[in-house]
Each structure stands twice: as structure tokens, then as C-alpha cells.
Simulated scan of single mutants.
Amino acid sequence: MKVSVKDLSVSMEIKNKGVELDVYDNSDNHLGDLIVTKTGLNWCKGKTTPAKGKKIKWEDFIAQMER
């Protein structure tokens, strides 16, 4: 996997708009974008817009990861 930050600022607090990560497979095919916000995560598969992405709140994400 290759994951890169679209816009990087050093030592920044994540605000409402969040930070968007590009996600590629090992063949350099774009899989989607992961948007990390202060309220949770939003996975945008392929060229899906953030409005149509799959969202999960931090509390739900943490609970799922700790199962």
C-alpha cells in the first residue's frame, strides 16, 4: 500500500475540514481517499466525493478495532 498526505502542515490540529490521504495499492492504482476529521473517518472509494463516502465516528471506529 502507498498512502500519502495531500496537504501537510507540521504540528496541526485537525479541524472540521480534516486531512485527506490518497491511498494506492502496490501497483500504484488509486483505491480511494481517507478523510480524517475531528469527528471521525470518511472512506471515499475510487473517485467518490466526500458527500457519498462511508463515514464512521471515532467512538465506533475505536470500538470496532478493539474487538
Rank of each mutant, 00 (worst) to 15 (best):
I56P: 04
K45R: 11
N16A: 12
A51R: 10
K2I: 10
K55L: 06
K47C: 05
K15F: 13
W58H: 13
V23I: 13
E13K: 13
G18Y: 03
L31T: 00
W43T: 01
T39F: 06
T37K: 13
K17M: 09
V3R: 07
E59S: 13
I14M: 00
L41K: 11
L21I: 04
V3Y: 01
K57W: 07
E66A: 11
K6S: 14
K38W: 10
W43F: 06
N29G: 00
C44G: 03
A63G: 04
V5I: 13
M12Q: 15
D60M: 03
S27K: 12
E66I: 06
L41Q: 08
K47Q: 07
E20C: 11
N16W: 07
S11Q: 12
D60F: 03
T37Y: 05
N26K: 14
L8T: 05
S9N: 14
V5T: 10
E13Y: 11
V19I: 15
G32I: 01
M12D: 08
K15I: 08
V23P: 01
L34R: 02
T49Y: 11
E59T: 09
V10A: 12
S4T: 14
N42V: 09
E66M: 12
L34T: 05
L8A: 10
L41S: 03
N16P: 00
I35Q: 10
S4C: 07
D33W: 00
E13N: 13
R67P: 01
D33Q: 09
V23H: 00
Y24G: 00
I56A: 04
V10C: 07
S9A: 13
V5P: 03
K6C: 12
P50R: 15
V19Y: 01
K47W: 10
N16M: 10
L34W: 01
H30Y: 08
F61T: 03
A63Q: 05
G18I: 00
K17C: 10
I62K: 15
T37A: 02
I14K: 06
K55A: 13
E13A: 15
S9L: 13
K6T: 12
S4H: 06
K47Y: 07
N42M: 05
